[in-house]
């Protein structure tokens, strides 16, 4: 059966068939026994990019565009390592990065992690930071 964002929420209850762990286990396989036996490890206990994209579609179907866009970015970031995520966050803080540095993060998001939405988001920040004097090079003048 195809996924219908209007009727399939909550996924865990209505469409467990669509939900799997990053290791490819089904939702029903996430049990105490499986954790006990080590069949399910910590890397399995999180949402996949696909699940996050479905949640994004559900939010959009419910009329919540910004939340849907946020979850779409989250789906992209699910495969970005935590350290890189924290580096990007730091880079986006005021007066931390030059326009070139932000562009470099946008490029890596696109090419290394297939995250075009987040890349566009970072580029938008770069443009606004340039207008508002929030880039690193302008720090001295503030």
């Amino acid at each position: 059966m195809r996924f219908d964002p209007n009727t399939d929420y909550p996924l865990g209850q209505k469409r467990p068939d669509l939900v799997s762990t990053p290791g490819g286990h089904s939702l029903g396989e996430v049990t105490l026994e499986a954790v006990r036996d080590g069949r399910i490890g910590p890397d399995d206990l999180r949402a996949t990019p696909e699940t996050l994209r479905r949640q994004s579609a559900i939010a959009l179907a419910a009329g919540r565009r910004p939340l849907a866009e946020n979850l779409a970015r989250a789906a992209e970031l699910a495969s970005v390592p935590a350290d890189s995520i924290l580096e990007i966050y730091t880079a986006l803080r005021p007066h931390r990065s030059s326009a070139e540095e932000l562009e470099e993060w946008a490029r890596r998001l696109e090419t290394e992690w297939a995250a075009p939405l987040t890349a566009a988001f970072v580029r938008e920040a770069r443009d606004v930071y340039a207008k508002r004097g929030l880039l690193a090079a302008e720090r001295a003048q503030v």
Partner: peptide, 19 residues
């Protein structure tokens, strides 16, 4: 507060990416 709306929104997405 050492943030911008973009950095905070990015952080929000980062948290969501970790469930």
């Amino acid at each position: 507060g050492d943030d911008t709306p973009w950095s905070k929104a990015f952080l929000g997405s980062a948290y969501a990416s970790r469930g």
